[in-house]
Amino acid sequence: MSTTTLDRVIGTARRSPTFAVGFGVIMVFAFLAAFADVIAPLPPTLSHPYDTLRPPGTGAFILGTDGNGMDVLSRVIHGARYAFGIALPAGAIMAVVGIPLGLIAGWRGGWVDEVLLRVLDVLRAFPTIILALAIVAATGQGFLNVILVVGFLDSPIFARIVRAEVLALRNATFVRAAVAAGNPEWRVLLVHILPNAILGATAQLPLRMAWAVRISATLAFIGIGVQAPAPEWGAMIRQGAEYVISGEWWVALFPGLALIALVLGLNLTGDGLSDLLDPKRRATGK
């Protein structure tokens, strides 16, 4: 890492410690997800029939085993792949669907804006978890279905954020100058408005990815999303919940802690980005 890059990293951490901590947590889980096959001591679905519900610290099982004799540590590590495997594509769908809709609604105005807003309002009127549960139950419990449902359900938030920014920018001096200079509409939107209107959506993305991780875990916990023996944290918590009463707390605790840590990291990153991208804070250098 060059001195200039290191200085920028240190400067960013000083301006927003919240972002630095959150981003650090995300990087830890990203590392676990990328190198899970190397880091995990055992295959995540390898069953040891004679070692079921072993407590943490028993032999080679650092975090114990579950009811099927599978290593909890290995499953928690591999669970990071499912978390990122849902959060990243779902976040991309939210942005790809919501941002263009917000651009069009804010720029066109009139009946186009009204129609798009009413459609988005209908989508947001239903309780999200119930709507997601119903759609996944109807379309199937596949991994791809969960990603698509979570991504599309949250796209209205991005559309509204971008629309509000476009409404504030479309009468700005630099936009009027671009139109007067003869720039086509698509160029005005993509070159002059989008880079300024996307800042709020950028800060919102980690927060909505955290929401995607929570929703996917919730769906798995209630038996609708990704199912066991896949090492998905929500499914692991569901499996371990039945053992808590009998004293085998570790089966549900460790995937639950991993879920909380990643969601917290994403939320801190989003909050930190809001600070870093705030024009007032950037202008004052605070």
Results as ranks from 00 to 15, higher is better:
residue 1 M to V: 04
residue 1 M to Y: 00
residue 1 M to S: 03
residue 7 D to V: 01
residue 7 D to H: 10
residue 8 R to D: 11
residue 12 T to Y: 05
residue 14 R to G: 09
residue 14 R to L: 08
residue 17 P to H: 05
residue 21 V to A: 10
residue 26 I to L: 14
residue 31 F to L: 15
residue 34 A to D: 06
residue 53 L to I: 07
residue 55 P to V: 04
residue 55 P to E: 02
residue 59 G to F: 01
residue 64 G to N: 11
residue 64 G to C: 09
residue 64 G to R: 11
residue 67 G to P: 12
residue 67 G to V: 05
residue 70 M to G: 04
residue 72 V to A: 12
residue 75 R to W: 10
residue 76 V to Y: 13
residue 84 F to L: 09
residue 91 G to N: 12
residue 94 M to E: 15
residue 96 V to S: 14
residue 101 L to P: 06
residue 102 G to L: 06
residue 106 G to M: 07
residue 108 R to A: 14
residue 108 R to S: 14
residue 109 G to Y: 05
residue 112 V to E: 03
residue 117 L to M: 14
residue 119 V to A: 14
residue 119 V to L: 15
residue 121 D to W: 10
residue 122 V to Q: 09
residue 126 F to R: 01
residue 128 T to S: 13
residue 129 I to P: 06
residue 131 L to H: 03
residue 136 V to W: 11
residue 136 V to L: 04
residue 140 G to V: 08
residue 142 G to I: 07
residue 143 F to C: 03
residue 144 L to Y: 07
residue 145 N to R: 02
residue 145 N to W: 01
residue 150 V to Y: 04
residue 150 V to I: 15
residue 150 V to N: 04
residue 151 G to C: 13
residue 152 F to E: 02
residue 153 L to E: 02
residue 154 D to N: 14
residue 155 S to K: 03
residue 159 A to T: 06
residue 160 R to P: 00
residue 162 V to I: 08
residue 162 V to L: 04
residue 163 R to F: 00
residue 163 R to G: 03
residue 165 E to N: 02
residue 166 V to Q: 05
residue 168 A to L: 08
residue 169 L to G: 03
residue 174 F to S: 07
residue 177 A to N: 11
residue 179 V to W: 05
residue 182 G to H: 12
residue 183 N to F: 14
residue 186 W to N: 13
residue 194 L to I: 04
residue 200 G to A: 10
residue 201 A to C: 05
residue 201 A to H: 02
residue 205 L to F: 13
residue 206 P to G: 13
residue 215 I to V: 15
residue 215 I to E: 09
residue 215 I to M: 15
residue 216 S to A: 15
residue 219 L to H: 01
residue 219 L to T: 00
residue 224 I to K: 05
residue 225 G to D: 01
residue 229 P to Y: 11
residue 232 E to C: 01
residue 232 E to L: 00
residue 237 I to N: 04
residue 239 Q to R: 07
residue 242 E to C: 00
residue 243 Y to G: 01
residue 243 Y to E: 06
residue 245 I to S: 09
residue 246 S to L: 12
residue 248 E to V: 10
residue 253 L to Y: 04
residue 254 F to A: 03
residue 254 F to Q: 01
residue 257 L to C: 13
residue 262 L to N: 07
residue 265 G to L: 09
residue 269 T to R: 09
residue 269 T to K: 07
residue 270 G to M: 04
residue 273 L to E: 08
residue 274 S to C: 06
residue 276 L to Y: 01
residue 280 K to D: 06
residue 281 R to V: 01
residue 283 A to E: 14
residue 286 K to D: 07
